[in-house]
Design a protein around this nucleic acid. Structure first.
Length: 500
RNA sequence: GGGCCGCUAGCUCAAUUGGCAGAGCAGCAGACUCUUAAUCUGCGGGUUCUCGGUUCGAUUCCGAGGCGGCUCACCA
C-alpha cells in the first residue's frame, strides 16, 4: 500500500478532478456553512411524514461524504453521511443551476459535497433533500471499499481506521461508546469531589505496577526515562499533598505481549480516596460501573462472547484463597484444606498436582495467585470482586490487621478477565521500604517485573499519607464489555501493528 | 516465542487432478426525471504477499521469508 498503483479507477477520479477545475470549481475550498449536520437533520425530521414536510417545506444546508450514487440520467439519488447518520439527496437536472448539475456529473463515490435544498419524502418514503444547490468540498481520489460487504479485512480496518469508519457504521458506534464511558467516569468522580490531574508519563523510575517498561532517553539531561507503567505512586504523592480525592484517566505503557486483551499502550482510570478502604471502593465501584454503563449504552445488561453479563449490583464477592482452595478441591476431587496454600512446600505440592507451573522464586502467596488464575479466571464472567490477595504479590497494599500474609486488595473480574484492581493503600513508610526491599530481592533473582525502590516515594510517606483506598479501572476492557468487542484492537482506534 | 489458519481485481469471494485466473459489487461507455444492494446493453481491469525449488506448465506441490487472525505461554 506504500506505493499507490495508478489503477484505472484512480486515473478516472483524477480526470474528474481536472474536469472540475476546468469548470472553475475550486477543488479544495476553504469552508462551507451548514445549518445542521446530517445526524441532526435526521434527528429533527426523521419521524415526520411526507405531508408534514410538504406543509412545512423545511430547507436545510448540510454536507457529507457521498456513500452511494444511483443515477437515472436526469434524476439522481446520492446518499451522504456525516459519519454518524446518512441522508438521501435528490439531484434533479431541472432543479439546480447548470453548473451544479455539471459538478454532479463529475462526482465519485467518496467525494465530499455540500448541499442546500428542501426536505421531502420520496414515493418510497425516504427522507430526502431535494437539492437546489450543490458545492464540491473535497475529492476522494482512491476507490473505497464496496458498499454492501463493507470492509471485512481486519488488518486494513486496524491499519487504515479511516476506511473502517467510512464504510462500517458500527466502528463509529464503538468509539462513541468509548467517549461516553470516559465522560461518564469524569462526571461520576467530579460529582463526588474528585480532582482530575495529570502526572508524568515519562518517569525516572517505572513504579506502581509489576510490569516491564519501555525505556527512552532525554538528550539535554542525558537521562534514562521510562514510559510509565502506572500513575500510582504520583497520585499517592498527591494524597500526601492533601488532595483527598484525586483521579487520572490516561495512557499506561507496558512492554509486554500483545493479545486480544493487551495492547502496549492502554488507558486506565486510577483514583484515590482518602479515609476509605477497599470495602468502600467495592461499594463505590458497584455505583460507578452501572452509572457508566447507563450513560454509555443506556443499560447495565450486555452480551460478551455470546454470554449475558449484568452490571446490576451487587456484584459477587469471592475470596482469592477460598476461590483457589475450592477450585483445587473440585479439580482434584478431594477437600483441600486452607493450610495447603499457606506454606511454600504444601502450596508447591498442590500446584504440582494441579499441573500449574511455578518457579523457584515463588513463595506460597505467589503460588496461590497462580493457582487462582489458572483455575478460576476464565469462569469469572459475571462481575466478581476477587478479594484478599497474598501480600507477596501486592507490594503497595496494606495488610489485613490479623493476617500479615494477606492484604486488603481486590480485583474486579468480568467477561473472564481483570477489569479493575484496588486496595487499601499501604501508607506506613517503614513497611513500604521493607516491601520494596523484598521486591529488590526478587529482581536480583531474575524477576524483571519486580518493583524498583523509589526513595522519594518512601520519603513522601514519611511526611504522612492519610489512610486511603485506590483503584485502577481498565478503560479499554470496560469498553470491550460494553460494546461486545472480542478484541482490544476493536476499541483502540490505532492499535499497535508491525509496520508493513 | 510455539501451534493452527489466512493472503487472488478497488472491495467481497471462486478457481476441479498442476493445464488459457473468474464472478458479484465498484469503474468506463450508452439508455432511463422517485431510486435505495436500482435495472438493462456493451467494455476494461491481475507482480494470485515475496523469493527460491520441482515441473513442459504452479493460484494450486515443496522450502524460506513477510504481514495478519485465532490460540498457548506472559501480562492488565
Amino acid at each position: 500500500m506504500n506505493t499507490v498503483q495508478e489503477s484505472d479507477q484512480v486515473v478516472q477520479r483524477r480526470a474528474n478532478l481536472e474536469e472540475l477545475k476546468k469548470l472553475g470549481v475550486e477543488p479544495y475550498p476553504r469552508r462551507f456553512e451548514i445549518d445542521a449536520p446530517v445526524d441532526a437533520i435526521v434527528a429533527q425530521h426523521g419521524s415526520k411524514s411526507g405531508e408534514e414536510l410538504e406543509a412545512a417545506q423545511p430547507r436545510t444546508r448540510t454536507a457529507g461524504r457521498i456513500l452511494s450514487i444511483r443515477s437515472f440520467g436526469k434524476a439522481n439519488f446520492l446518499v451522504i453521511s456525516d459519519g454518524r447518520a446518512r441522508v438521501q439527496v435528490y439531484i434533479r437536472q431541472d432543479s439546480l443551476p447548470e453548473r451544479d448539475f455539471k459538478i454532479y456529473k463529475l462526482l465519485d463515490f467518496g467525494d465530499w459535497i455540500g448541499v442546500e435544498g428542501r426536505l421531502f419524502r420520496t414515493k418510497t418514503n425516504e427522507l430526502t433533500i431535494w437539492a437546489s444547490k450543490l458545492e464540491f468540498l473535497a475529492k476522494c481520489l482512491l476507490p473505497l471499499p464496496e458498499k454492501w460487504h463493507g470492509l471485512q479485512d481486519v488488518e486494513i480496518r486496524y491499519r487504515q481506521r479511516y476506511l473502517d469508519l467510512i464504510v462500517n457504521p458500527d466502528a463509529r458506534t464503538v468509539f462513541e461508546v468509548r467517549s461516553r464511558v470516559i465522560a461518564a467516569m469524569r462526571e461520576f468522580l467530579s460529582e463526588r469531589g474528585f480532582l482530575e490531574v495529570e502526572t508524568p508519563m515519562m518517569q525516572p523510575i517505572a513504579g506502581g505496577a509489576l510490569a516491564r517498561p519501555f525505556v527512552t532517553h532525554h538528550n539535554a539531561l542525558d537521562m534514562r526515562l521510562f514510559m510509565r507503567i502506572a500513575p500510582e505512586l504520583y497520585l499517592k504523592r498527591l494524597t500526601v499533598g492533601g488532595i483527598e480525592r484525586v483521579f487520572e484517566i490516561n495512557r499506561n505503557f507496558r512492554n509486554e505481549g500483545i493479545s486480544t486483551q493487551h495492547n502496549p499502550e492502554f488507558t486506565m482510570l486510577e483514583f484515590y480516596r482518602a479515609y476509605a478502604d477497599y470495602n468502600d471502593l467495592m461499594t463505590l465501584t458497584e455505583e460507578m460501573l452501572p452509572f457508566v454503563a447507563q450513560k454509555a449504552i443506556g443499560g447495565t445488561e450486555v452480551t460478551f462472547n455470546g454470554q449475558p453479563i449484568s452490571f446490576t449490583p451487587p456484584f459477587r464477592r469471592l475470596s482469592l484463597r477460598e476461590g483457589a482452595r475450592a477450585a483445587a478441591s473440585r479439580r482434584l476431587g478431594v477437600d483441600v484444606p486452607a493450610e495447603s496454600l499457606r506454606s511454600r512446600e504444601k502450596a508447591a505440592e498442590l500446584a504440582s498436582k494441579l499441573h500449574v507451573p511455578i518457579e523457584s522464586g515463588m513463595g506460597a502467596g505467589k503460588i496461590t495467585a497462580e493457582v487462582f488464575e489458572a483455575l478460576c479466571e476464565e469462569e469469572l464472567v459475571q462481575p466478581t470482586f476477587v478479594y484478599d490477595f497474598p501480600t507477596e504479590v501486592s507490594p503497595l497494599s496494606k495488610q489485613k490487621p490479623d493476617d500479615p500474609d494477606t492484604v486488603e486488595r481486590f480485583e474486579l473480574y468480568a467477561g473472564g478477565f481483570e477489569l479493575a484492581n484496588a486496595f487499601s493503600e499501604l501508607n506506613d513508610p517503614v513497611e513500604q521500604r521493607r516491601r520494596f526491599e523484598e521486591q529488590l530481592a526478587s529482581r536480583a533473582g531474575g524477576d524483571e517485573e519486580a518493583h524498583a525502590m523509589d526513595e522519594d516515594y518512601v520519603r513522601a510517606l514519611e511526611f504522612g499519607m492519610p489512610p486511603a483506598g485506590g483503584e485502577g479501572v481498565g478503560i479499554d476492557r470496560l469498553v470491550m464489555l460494553l460494546t461486545g468487542s472480542p478484541s482490544i484492537r476493536d476499541v483502540i482506534l490505532f492499535p499497535l501493528m508491525r509496520p508493513k
